[in-house]
Computed example of a mutant assay.
Amino acid sequence: MDVFADRAEAGALLAERLRHISDPVVLALPRGGVAVALPVARRLGGVLDVLVTRKIGYPPSPELGVGAIAEGGEPVLDLGLLRRLGMTSESVAGVVAEERRELARRVEVYRGERPLPDLAGREVIVVDDGLATGGTARAALRAVRARGPGRLTLAVPVGARETVEAMREEADEVVVLIVPADFRAVGQWYERFEQLTDADVLSLLAEA
């Protein structure tokens, strides 16, 4: 199966699949989602902004995500996983508080004092560079849904099959270019998948 040259190419291809949508608010999940979302916003004549999310990690092993939080939303925890780990939502309250602080810091970096666009009644597209477990995407979609969009679409270039199907419960439409049977990680489906910095995100937002 083909891979994408980079996030910009993936975004351009994604934009073609989304061309039935006009004048949307395109909300990118930083950092990698911003590079995908820029060509989408340009192609559809939409407004581009970021929706900041943070993973909530398992305290003994923070790389294991047990949930996520998005700006303006409440924590979305994987309660089944927490039970299997012998934990409760109270067990990660300290991590949630830390991630709230880091989320607020990143919102300040990316947007300053400017609020999110008004999403009420609008066509909203949430964009990321891929779907693995879907924790941050789920938190993002629920935070957006609470703001009353007219229609909510999740758009990603590549995603794990089970996660893509699960996201159909969270969005009105899920658009994914590649749903490989052998998905292991988002990065394997890109020739170039460098980590973006805050400066990269700000540069992409300035281009928009």
Rank of each mutant, 00 (worst) to 15 (best):
115 P>W: 08
143 A>L: 10
115 P>I: 09
47 V>K: 14
165 E>F: 03
149 P>C: 06
161 R>L: 02
55 K>C: 01
101 R>T: 14
78 D>I: 06
143 A>F: 13
82 L>C: 07
49 D>V: 11
71 E>T: 09
110 Y>T: 11
71 E>A: 08
119 L>C: 11
50 V>R: 12
145 R>H: 09
157 P>L: 05
85 L>Q: 06
139 A>D: 02
161 R>H: 02
142 R>F: 05
123 E>K: 14
92 V>I: 14
99 E>D: 06
153 T>S: 11
71 E>D: 12
68 A>H: 00
48 L>D: 03
77 L>G: 07
97 A>R: 15
140 A>M: 06
30 P>K: 05
64 L>A: 03
145 R>Q: 12
155 A>E: 00
45 G>S: 01
116 L>Y: 12
126 V>I: 14
166 A>Q: 03
28 A>T: 11
158 V>S: 01
114 R>V: 15
135 G>Q: 13
45 G>L: 00
95 V>Q: 11
131 L>D: 01
96 V>E: 04
50 V>Q: 05
131 L>V: 14
164 V>N: 00
106 R>G: 02
83 R>Y: 09
82 L>F: 11
121 G>S: 05
40 V>L: 13
152 L>M: 05
59 P>D: 02
111 R>L: 09
158 V>R: 01
84 R>G: 12
153 T>C: 05
33 G>I: 04
130 G>L: 00
78 D>L: 04
149 P>L: 07
31 R>M: 02
79 L>P: 03
88 T>N: 06
143 A>R: 10
73 G>Y: 11
146 A>V: 09
59 P>H: 05
105 R>E: 15
56 I>L: 15
156 V>C: 04
110 Y>C: 01
44 L>F: 06
84 R>D: 12
